[in-house]
Design a protein around this nucleic acid. Structure first.
Lengths: 222, 222
DNA sequence: CGAGTTCTTGACAGTGATCAAGCGACGTGG
DNA sequence: CCACGTCGCTTGATCACTGTCAAGAACTCG
């Protein structure tokens, strides 16, 4: 939520986020084709957003942590354009979008905040396109680990120790790789002493080595 | 521009799009790092948006045609996050973003329109992620050709004949492939009688075959 | 007309996918 | 508490797709 509001304004905005719902692990917050009514602010828990192909395979388009907004995909067609699935039991604020728009007209700060959130999502996806289009498996996984650990750190968790909430298959789908490749690359990082992996537990030992991998595609060809 | 406004309102909104600039082929409309001040509505011409790696290789993140909006990436950090380069001489409306926000608060229709435009861009990028993450070279190029011909058709051009404004390298960058692969795949489509290609000229002979390729990744694995 | 850019095509190599087998963790019910 | 079943993870062997390197052709534009 944006800053710079009076306490009276904040009281009014509280109504916007009054409705809270709980989503159990594995359950959808919304599904492709659902009518779009609201944006959702994640209070606790981790979600994935994904598209499904007709045969049931999925493309994970993002992982969302506490404090992030999901549902922006639904605005354009008044229907959700992806599935949002809880990767652990989650707690979510429901923000009816018509109210978001009403309040946005009233509070320029909120309006600008909304625009920034949508722009940030566009820029994030640009980064994923770069990742999928130009990077190799090791670079992709390094980028993923660094990004995840940074976001967790910003939420007060350890920057070096991560408990993955998603499977190898989901990571692979997000990164455009198969689960075997994720597993192999984790094992290689482990052998090289860059990280310590054991199933869902990951400890980042040498963040600089990961950064180097991440930058490699920019520097390799000098 | 949205519909459902009175002529008086339209007159006022005209001020928003009063500034027009011309961009020569190959010239940037804006560049990565530039201060963000405005959104741009393309009146004529085709643009590419791209990110540059340190070594000068690029990731094309999109191709924009007349009627589309560029610059949304700049909102989040008050700096442009990519380059927008004209692929042919172009004519662009400059819309100062602070005015866009002012008018959006005044005209709910415009506000909602803006939200839809940003949401549409998010959904488009989701589609590109699916393409880059799950599809093979032929499927990607088929999707690209279908998408381009549809968008051109919506602008009154032929649905079957396309003059590409971008190089093989730019198409490849967008699709996560090398220019040789684009060239080979074009040649294969040509041999198979699906399209007729000659340099920048492309005629779509068998759109259904392209659609089948595009859907293949959903149906192949039943 | 010539220089530079873009495109095509071939030969070969490499990265990651596929197929397959086995292991390990976790949860449920006996 | 343990047995068992399921799901997720690891690892190996092989293969296919696309990348890389290279050469030459075609087109564009000064």
């Amino acid at each position: 939520m944006p800053v710079g509001l009076t306490s009276h304004e904040i009281n009014r905005l509280d109504k916007l986020v009054a409705t809270r719902i709980k989503i159990k692990q594995g359950e959808p917050l919304f599904s492709l084709g659902d009518e779009f009514t609201s944006l959702y602010a994640i209070r606790t828990g981790v979600f994935k957003t994904c598209l499904l192909t007709a045969d049931g395979r999925e493309q994970v388009t993002g992982f969302q942590l506490a404090g992030e907004i999901v549902g922006l995909d639904g605005i354009v067609n008044d229907r959700h354009n992806c599935n949002a699935i809880a990767l652990e039991d989650a707690d979510v604020c429901v923000m009816p979008f018509s109210k978001v728009e009403d309040f946005s007209r009233e509070f320029p700060v909120l309006q600008h905040h909304m625009h920034k959130i949508m722009s940030r999502e566009i820029v994030r996806e640009n980064g994923v396109m770069m990742l999928l289009g130009n990077m190799r498996a090791e670079e992709r996984l390094a980028a993923f680990l660094l990004n995840l650990s940074q976001r967790l750190h910003a939420r007060g968790f350890s920057q070096t120790e991560v408990i993955l909430r998603m499977t190898r298959e989901e990571i692979g789908s997000y990164l455009g790789l198969k689960l075997e490749t994720i597993s192999r690359t984790f094992s290689k990082f482990n052998r090289d002493g860059i990280i310590e992996v054991k199933q869902r537990y990951v400890r980042i030992i040498d963040a600089d080595a990961l950064k180097k991998l991440y930058d490699a595609h920019s520097q390799a060809c000098h």
